[in-house]
Each structure stands twice: as C-alpha cells, then as structure tokens.
C-alpha cells in the first residue's frame, strides 16, 4: 500500500522551478532514500509532503489523505526533522520536548512516557536540563530527531538526519532508522551517498527538481553494470600486458593504476564494452603467453559513481554546469 504518493508535483518560486513535475511514492514500512545534490529540490519536496508549503501544481497524498485539503490530519501522522534541526534555543531540552509533545496531542501519562522513551533512545539524558542553545551541534541534531520521534508517528520525514554528526553518532542514527524498517515509513534525504546505500531499501534520485532515477541501491548499480570495469594485476612487463589487453576485441580502454597501494606487479583498470564479459578471454590470452594473472576483480559501482553519472548524463547540461562554475 502506498503511504506517500507524490503525483506530478511542481513548485515554482516566481519563474524558477524548484521542483518540476515530480512523481514517486513510498510504500508502508519502507525506508526511502531521497538523494540529490544541494539545491536539487529535496528540502522543498519534503516541506510539501509535510504540508509546510503547498505545491504549485500536482497533488500529494499521505495515507490516502490530500495534504492541501486536510493538513491537520496529515500532520498527526508525520514526524518531521527539518534541515539543520531548528529548535527554540531559549528553552531547556525538557521544556522543549514537553512543548512539542503537547503540540502533538500526546496527553496525560503517555506524554511523560513518550518523552522518557525518546530521551533514552537518543541518549539525551546528560543535556536534559540544559538550555537547547547551549547544547553542542550533535546534541541539537538529536534533540530535533527526538522531537520527530515523539508519539511514534507512522511516517518520518527526515531532512539530512545525519549532517553535522560525528561518525559514531552517524552509526547510531543509522541503526535507529533501520530499527524502524517495516514498522514505519521513512523518507530521508541526504547528499552523503553511503548513508543512503546502507539504510535505504529504495532510492529516489532528483536533480534540478526532476526525477532522475528510482530504484533499489543494487538495482541502480545493475542498471549501470553495462559498462563493466575490471581491475587486473599480472606478473608481466607493463608493455606486454598493455599490448595483450589492447589487442583483445571488446576492450575500450586500459589504464595503468597508480602504484603505491601495494608494491609488487603493476595493476590495471580495464574498461570493457557494455554488456560483455571478457574475463575468460583475458584469462586464456594471458595463459597462452604464460603470464600469470594474480588478481582480476570486477569493480562494482558505488552509488556515488551512479549518482555522478546520472546527474551528468545529459552532456549539454553538464556543459552548462561547468560554465556556471567559471566566473565570467
């Protein structure tokens, strides 16, 4: 069942489109990664899903309820961590969480319990009586997250939940989000790719407000597996290796890797034509010449490679981007 349906949504500020005809969905219990470079429209989209700003065109449904028509009902289902976790600096952590819990209509004894739960879950005990404004950035971010988790909402919208955290805290947040998998629907945005790769079941990539790709992390990788790349290490003179490889039909390019990582015979990166597996051909060719292959590894694409490739796929736009970088 679709928990969140974003349907042909456009958001324009004046003439500029921040989000342009975007369509995707998130099913119940899914952890969806929302990926894109800075300024791609991630934050704008998340604000529209939470009902904070209305779309210029298109519709958003949360658990079947239209966000624009019934924002109150939608806000009861969503826990939201905005970008940079804005908080009231002049309140103590205790007062702040109590205020947010009251606003979220958590009443009576349940409120105390809920606050204790999120304080324990995010380890806010040491700063509980402190002013929010005096807490470190890492704590402030966790306070923001604690606020979003209050009331155990069905849906969590987390805008850059791990930015500004140290690696250990990042790991903890990642565990926390993974804990929610299956029970709660989570959309989290990031421009840190391994983050998404490790926590999300499905990834939506947007660039300049438009959908670029939507798939599982491994599905995205498979989609681009077409151009296979091998790393190969042979005990042989460099010239011989280069000659043998370049002669082989189906090989696009051979590049000698920079030495340094490990001493010993040089290694090479071999790019093959799309959808051709030449590993056996390479093996026999070197075997015929009595040159032993020490290592041959298919190089998998990281999400990072895919991401870069997807957003620069349009060569014209890539050109434009480059031109923008050079100050005129």
């Amino acid at each position: 069942m679709d928990m969140i349906e974003v349907n042909g949504v456009t958001k324009r500020y004046g003439k500029k489109s921040a989000v342009d005809n975007l369509t995707f969905n998130a099913t119940k219990g899914e952890i969806l990664g929302f990926l894109g470079p800075n300024g791609a429209g991630k934050t704008t989209t998340m604000r529209m899903i939470t009902g904070f700003i209305p779309p210029t065109a298109g519709s958003i449904r949360v658990d079947g309820i239209d966000v624009v028509e019934n924002p109150m009902a939608v806000s009861r289902k969503i826990g939201y961590l905005p970008e940079d976790a804005p908080l009231y600096p002049e309140m103590t952590v205790a007062d702040f969480l109590d205020f947010m819990a009251e606003m979220k209509e958590i009443k009576g004894k349940g409120r105390r319990r809920e606050i204790d739960r999120v304080v324990a879950r995010l380890e806010l005990g040491p700063v509980y009586r402190r002013l929010v404004g005096n807490c470190s950035l890492g704590y402030r971010h966790r306070i923001g997250l604690a606020q979003a988790l209050l009331g155990d909402p069905e849906i969590l919208i987390l805008d850059e939940p791990t930015s500004g955290l140290d690696p250990r805290q990042r790991l903890e947040i990642r565990d926390l989000i993974r804990d929610l998998a299956g029970r709660r629907t989570v959309i989290l945005s990031s421009h840190v790719l391994p983050e998404v790769q490790q926590t999300c079941e499905r990834v939506v990539i947007i660039n300049e407000g438009r959908l670029v790709a939507e798939d599982t992390p491994s599905g995205l990788a498979a989609r681009l597996q077409g151009q296979s790349i091998l790393r190969i290490q042979v005990r042989a003179p460099v010239e011989d290796t280069l000659r043998l490889l370049e002669d082989l039909p189906g090989i696009v390019a051979v590049k000698r890797d920079a030495d340094g990582r490990n001493a010993g015979p040089p290694s090479f990166t071999v790019e093959m034509e799309p959808n051709r597996d030449l590993r056996e051909d390479i093996f026999f060719r070197f075997a015929e010449s009595n040159l032993p292959i020490l290592e041959m590894t298919p190089v998998g694409f990281s999400l990072e490679d895919i991401f870069l490739q997807l957003i620069t796929e349009d060569p014209e736009r890539a050109q434009e981007d480059r031109r923008e970088v050079i100050p005129s």
Binding site: T50, Y80, P82, P86, P89, M103, K104
Partner: peptide, 14 residues
C-alpha cells in the same frame, strides 16, 4: 528567522 516555524506549523495546529 530561526526556522522553528517549520516544526511548529507541521504539528496539528492552525
């Protein structure tokens, strides 16, 4: 200015 309107107005409040 603080951006807190974003957490305030996304709770069930008019």
């Amino acid at each position: 200015r603080q951006g807190t309107s974003e957490i305030l107005f996304t709770t069930p409040v008019s």
